Amino acid sequence: MIRSANEVMVLATKAARGAGAPAAQAAQFGAAAVVHLIEGRDIEVLDTALASLPDGPIIELPLALMRIVEGQVEGIAQGPLDQSQNALVQSYVAAMPCAAALTAEGVVHIDLNRRAPRAAVQRINLSEQTYAAWTALAAALLVPESDASRLSGAGAGLTDND
């Protein structure tokens, strides 16, 4: 089924959160997932990354990119990235908000002084099977509907009168 890039990004982010990723890494995964799918890369890479949580590339790639950026000089940073997840590495680099490029040797070049060029937003064909699997992961973020959860602060509480 055809979905908006924003819908896919939010769903991928929630799926990563539901599978155990911290919020920041989940958000970066959501952005990278959209790039990954727009570029026509294999969706299995995304599913494998989700299945490897709470470890794996969803945790490791943002941290590796952050370490490279921490070493920047005058807004320019570069450093090697592990190429064992090459397709996912490409998607993470392309999803960065600043100009970044990955060489064939696995070295990322980041220019913090320039914004990343962005193509027009596209729609993404996401299979019903993937949509259902990611929705199930995202559902792990929800609390059960009960008086006990409402007493703990979930929802509108016990006296919803609007």
Rank of each mutant, 00 (worst) to 15 (best):
I2R: 11
R3H: 13
R3T: 05
E7V: 05
A12C: 14
A12E: 01
T13I: 12
K14S: 14
A16M: 00
G18I: 00
G18P: 04
G20E: 00
G20F: 03
Q25V: 03
A27M: 14
Q28F: 00
F29Y: 02
A31I: 11
A33Q: 12
A33Y: 02
V34F: 04
L37M: 15
L37R: 15
G40T: 09
I43Q: 12
I43W: 03
I43Y: 08
E44A: 15
L50R: 11
L50K: 07
S52M: 11
D55L: 08
I59L: 11
E60A: 06
E60F: 02
P62C: 00
L65G: 01
L65S: 05
L65T: 06
M66Q: 15
M66G: 11
I68L: 04
V69T: 06
V69I: 08
G71L: 00
G71K: 03
E74W: 01
L81H: 01
D82P: 13
D82N: 12
Q83F: 02
Q85A: 14
L88Q: 15
Y92H: 01
A101S: 12
A101E: 15
L102S: 01
L102C: 07
A104M: 09
V108K: 02
I110T: 03
D111L: 00
A116C: 13
A116G: 05
P117V: 10
R123H: 13
R123M: 11
L126N: 06
S127T: 12
Q129D: 11
T130D: 06
Y131V: 10
A132I: 05
L137N: 14
A139S: 15
A139G: 15
L141F: 07
V143T: 09
V143R: 09
V143Y: 10
S152Y: 09
G153D: 04
G153H: 02
G153I: 03
G157T: 10
N161L: 12
D162M: 02
